[in-house]
């Protein structure tokens, strides 16, 4: 971890729906502007975080803990620290996803349909992690109005997919009118069938931004199935070694 990369890059935060916003003025009113802001504000140079994923399914509850590093728009690395998967790593670089397992002598590269598999049996798929944050390229946004969500005023925006290559044809987002945090999101099929629901339970402040620290993701098609994502710490713009995100380095 030596050099500080000065180039301004968009960070795609590795774990799904943790969208980060800077406080901003309330002048943005069109749906496109709100979404653009939401995407724009998901901007980090680098980050380091620790947290856990708690998954509940028909067999009970299990918790995995992780450390995660990210850099720029596309690079991220997650290392699991919980006993059951200690040492396993997931590396995402531009366009590819690699899995590293301590007992395997080669990396497993996931692509295509294999990315649709669930990560650690949770309601999050590998694909959810690799989702590009260019929302407006793939979705048409319509501002439905404003609505209070847990005492917070939110814009309610419906996103309708303009391409078939995204997982969720319809998304409904509740975005904080002040800090652009997505408090709640509903993911549906084109026919409006609710598939997944995300809700932010608590927030934390880091680097002057309000971000979700505890999120619940529910698979609405399965009863008693949900995933809690918890962020214990987040370091914004730490100095990271660029080599972290290389294949050679994955095997340390």
């Amino acid at each position: 971890m030596c050099k500080h990369d000065k180039s301004k890059k968009h960070l795609l935060f590795p774990l799904l729906l943790l969208l980060v916003f800077l406080p901003s003025n309330l002048s943005a009113v069109s749906a496109e502007e709100i979404i653009q802001k939401m995407d724009e504000l998901a901007t980090f140079e680098t980050s380091y975080s620790t947290g856990s994923i708690q998954t509940k399914d028909r067999f009970g509850t299990k918790t995995s803990t992780f450390n995660a590093w990210s850099q720029g728009e596309s690079d991220s690395l997650i290392e699991f620290t919980s006993t059951a998967e200690r040492g396993q790593k997931i590396l995402r670089t531009k366009g590819s996803l690699y899995l590293f397992y301590p007992d395997a002598e080669e990396l497993i590269r996931l692509q295509g349909a294999a990315l649709r598999q669930s990560m650690l049996g949770s309601d999050i798929s590998y694909e959810d992690m690799t989702e590009e944050k260019n929302t407006l390229d793939n979705y048409k946004a319509v501002l439905e109005g404003t609505e209070a969500f847990k005492d917070t005023m939110c814009y309610v925006i419906t996103l309708t997919a303009t391409t078939r290559s995204v997982a969720y044809p319809v998304q409904k987002l509740w975005i904080d009118t002040e800090n652009y945090l997505v408090w709640k999101a509903q993911y549906s099929t084109a026919q409006g069938r609710l598939l997944k629901e995300m809700e932010v339970l608590s927030t934390l402040e880091a680097g002057g931004r309000v971000i979700a620290s505890e999120t619940r993701i529910e698979d609405k098609m399965k009863r008693d199935s949900h995933t809690y994502m918890r962020l214990d710490s987040l370091e914004v713009n730490p100095v990271l070694d660029k080599k972290i995100f290389t294949l050679e380095n994955l095997t340390w």
Binding site: T55, D57, F59, K62, S64, A84, E85, Q88, L99, Y101, D103, A104, E105, E106, I108, L120, G121
Partner: peptide, 18 residues
């Protein structure tokens, strides 16, 4: 020859071994 296997474990996570 060496081959890598990927599977779901009893901890309901994934794991691979060569």
């Amino acid at each position: 020859d060496k081959v890598t296997m990927l599977t779901t474990t009893a901890a309901r996570g994934s794991n691979a071994i060569t």
